[in-house]
């Protein structure tokens, strides 16, 4: 692997890992379902960055972009469904606290 390519990828790779860390931390600590979904969005931001950086490093930007656009479409569908479910949960419990979800015991 050429040196410049791997240096470029490493820089954005570090950024992606840090955003991922932030997203996972928030996912585990937050108590609002809306914030949980925002954390999930941050996580998908991080993999999107990783994907585009990888595509750039190996000169496959066309493929990487096609994948990224597909991913964005999927993201929208997931967010819409999640928001719909959260609204329905809110209607039942009058709260979006994650505690209501943890009530179903293992």
């Amino acid at each position: 692997m050429p040196k410049e390519a791997i240096e470029l990828f490493s820089l954005f790779g570090v950024g992606a890992l840090l955003v991922m860390l932030v997203g996972f931390y928030s996912l585990l600590t937050t108590r609002s379902l809306i914030r949980v979904m925002i954390s999930v969005e941050l996580l998908s931001k991080s993999v999107m960055l990783l994907l585009i950086a990888a595509g750039r490093a190996v000169n496959r930007t066309a493929l990487a972009q096609a994948m990224a656009i597909t991913l964005i479409n999927i993201e929208v569908a997931v967010v819409v469904v999640a928001v719909g479910i959260i609204l329905c949960i809110y209607r039942h419990h009058k709260t979006v606290d994650t505690a209501v979800v943890q009530e179903i015991k293992g």
Partner: peptide
């Protein structure tokens, strides 16, 4: 912006 700089303008517009 980062995507744009990484030679991926189309993905950047979508993002």
């Amino acid at each position: 912006i980062i995507m744009f700089r990484l030679a991926s303008p189309l993905a950047a517009v979508f993002e």
